[in-house]
Amino acid sequence: MISLVNISKTFNRGALKALSGISLEAKSGELFGLIGPDGAGKTTLFRILTTLMLPDSGDALINGLDIKKDVTTIRSKLGYMPGRFSLYQDLTVDENLKFFATLFGTTVRENYAQIRDIYIQLEPFKNRRAGKLSGGMKQKLALCCALIHRPDILLLDEPTTGVDAISRKEFWEMLARLKADGITIMVSTPYMDEANLCDTIALIDQGRILSIDTPGNIVRNYPRPLYAFKAKNLYRLQQDLRLHENIHSCFAFGEYLHVSFRDESAVSLPVMAKWLEENGHQEIILKNQTPVIEDCFIDLLKH
């Protein structure tokens, strides 16, 4: 279990507020996601949780242990995978794994069961130097090294950034299996689509938590109906809609625009379609849209 109460951290003598009053709780065996853009403070939060950095104020407990006092005990219970690949590139896959196992006072053999599913994919490359692995394989090795001492809690800082779509999918499947083993996982990602794979998510921006809930609840709490608009010239469509006085928000989302209205009673889809046609738009498609996490994030940012 991870619980944070009012964690704040500033850099450059207070000039840069990285985290302001973060409070959250990740229950045991939960897959907890920190969702936010670059510079939101996700990495700083991880550095505090891994005892690499002290917060300016606030308390943090990991499985009931204080990050300020029980540093050594916490470190033996944590598995941490930093955002940047930071294993020894000049050592082989096996050597890295053995090194980190012994560093935590255990052996690969002893905890092989923990990493078997992941390691099987790495096995053909076990004598290859870590620096020569592909991006996806590097991630798998880093995950193995973070798991080799059977941590209770796994902290993953943007594990899927810069990894191809298939490897990303595989990676989340691995996380699901680890969760099933009872490990508490906290993972950060800038990709909103990955948020749905978490049990609970915290939306973070500029060191503040915008919302904490299950992905389902966050989506359900989207405050107004959402529509998807499409026309032949999407760019001009967006320009025109943003000038319309009843438009609350309008954002490009793949091949559609996600649109919401200020006053739902004053407008309907046929009326909008007519208005757009009058403005010279062709191939108009207007439909209802279920909100996704990104819509919620954008909406929360507006407040």
Partner: peptide, 13 residues
């Protein structure tokens, strides 16, 4: 530089 010191620092060493 390559960040490995961070991995060492989070270990009980």
């Amino acid at each position: 530089e390559i960040g490995t010191i961070e991995q060492i620092n989070v270990s009980p060493i």
